[in-house]
Design a binder for these strands. Sequence first.
DNA 1: GCACGTCCAACAATCGATTGCAACAACTTT
DNA 2: AAAGTTGTTGCAATCGATTGTTGGACGTGC
Lengths: 340, 340
Amino acid sequence: MSDSPPVPARIRNIAELARLAGVSTGTVSRALADKALVNKETRERIQALARAHGFRPNQMARRLRIQETKVIGVVIPLGHEQRQHLSDPFFMAILGHLADALTESGYDIMLSRVIPDADDWLERIVDSGMLDGVLLIGQSNQFEAIERVAQWYRPMVVWGTQHLDQTHCSVGVNNRTGGRLAGECLIAAGRKRLAFLGETIAPELKDRYLGLCDAAAAAGLAQPIKLDTHLAADLMAGDIAAHIDRIGSDVDGIAAGSDLIAMQAVRALADRGINVPHDVSVTGFDDLPLAEQTIPRLTTISQNIPGGARAMVTALFERIGGADTPSIEMAAQLIRRDTA
Amino acid sequence: MSDSPPVPARIRNIAELARLAGVSTGTVSRALADKALVNKETRERIQALARAHGFRPNQMARRLRIQETKVIGVVIPLGHEQRQHLSDPFFMAILGHLADALTESGYDIMLSRVIPDADDWLERIVDSGMLDGVLLIGQSNQFEAIERVAQWYRPMVVWGTQHLDQTHCSVGVNNRTGGRLAGECLIAAGRKRLAFLGETIAPELKDRYLGLCDAAAAAGLAQPIKLDTHLAADLMAGDIAAHIDRIGSDVDGIAAGSDLIAMQAVRALADRGINVPHDVSVTGFDDLPLAEQTIPRLTTISQNIPGGARAMVTALFERIGGADTPSIEMAAQLIRRDTA
DNA sequence: GCACGTCCAACAATCGATTGCAACAACTTT
DNA sequence: AAAGTTGTTGCAATCGATTGTTGGACGTGC
């Protein structure tokens, strides 16, 4: 478009700029950092020169020297289910809120989707020297690895269930209570033959199932059956359809392990002419934005994802500052909509 | 748990390890890189020592020296709509596929959600010195800024519409054709009073609207009306509901700017007792995974997100290698489901 | 015994910044 | 005029790696 040359000669480092300005590199560095230590005139002269040549100091070098990277690692461990895709809506929802909170505070985000093959995967991330802190979304089946690292690495916060005697700092809802709430909701709707739909290798999902069992036991019902599914969205659909074909009308209340699973279940039931909630009640878990947009709207257990994300970031910053924050457990909450 | 001390003394850099091993830092560096230049015995001795102390070389320093970061920036410019949230399902879907492709190739991902306030936002990202390349998801209203940078910065690929005479490398569907397909689908269903639902500041959405107009003109229909909405999910719902209340039955065919908008429209129509597709036909755009899971399933225009993401990554790698790849335009495809 | 090649490790420069300290000029104070 | 301040700038060390070059030890061939 414009053929005015705004870039007379590309400058690669402060040394070249220093030569051009006839000063030392130290002065250039201070000038660009706008330090009062250098004369206002030379300062502005150097800044103008930098602008004219489109020069910006190399962040890699700066951060190496400063020993502060202003980068937070957001890590999604996919231990239990390698095929699970990063685009899982739950990951994405929480990632979005984390990104908002972190960028507001001037931090960059390094995103890692890790399949824990080597057992030192977390150590490798944590002392790469590129991160000021780490946020883990879900502990998957990697409790041991996380605990091991938490012994000596402070600035790390994990989304997930809180265990007894854990060293690491976690933020999450009480999944067992959440599962119980879902169960109570189904039971209140008059359902008696309950099932849990979801893979229970990850501790979060397992706790939800146990909560459902608690509710059933309290109401004197038989123990809910457990129907495993893949976590990858594409495989999940087939699993769910197969389960529903198999169990037929043996089940009248389904507590799904996540909203995504619940959506697919409602979909599969609808395909078979089974009406939700008339014939079968279904509850989700997570309260993703899309739970409100399905038809019928999902009754689900809220994880308060925005609040949780904020809490993770706050705790992480305190830990970067040297504090030793406790784990946070948020209250699960039943969101009653149309499916149960 | 275990009280065996696996970490006798924390080692911070290769110099300390070198002292411990009684060799020079150069030897340690080469030993850890497993170079044949150092004697096999000392090499293994040093590697064992590093393992025992849990030492891993600082990546920041390494990358500074190597002048290669193995980090790709994935940038989401939010120029037109600051409130738009990162958790927008379209962003997340494509981000997921990009993440898969990049991690497979050994690259890390630096995620930036940018609100282009300063006009050199892209320059700042691009020569931070921390990135080997940049992927932009959507060009928002930042065409000028992107072109300016593309003049001198090669390793950058942009998701979005292809303009005439653009310098930068883009990958995306032909949005105008896509819009036309949507229009033709509505018209084929006998709809005559068409509307486009979505914000048309971003060029992608604008092209979709123009395509819809093309179809209407070809069929001799009146020009479709344009109904603006916010792009932020929470504000969008209100806008859409208001539009639908206002236009009433003046419209019998809605081409939505995205699947998300279409979902909300279907939802709002259902709330008012208007049946889709019986009373009103609706088409989406993107073909997100969730388009298949709504009830009724969305009829939509496929963007082939997985293929597009792969194409972006492939093009980027070629550009990092020095090649000068052309833009890629993919064919839009109508996916006929239940809503139109 | 001397020249030569091979193997291995040390030395030192380099990547591109930041920053404590010293140096020096120009004023003030006494 | 000597001593002390104040304001600017330069020098050089530092962050933690990588890598080209140098050189010593050793073995071999004549």
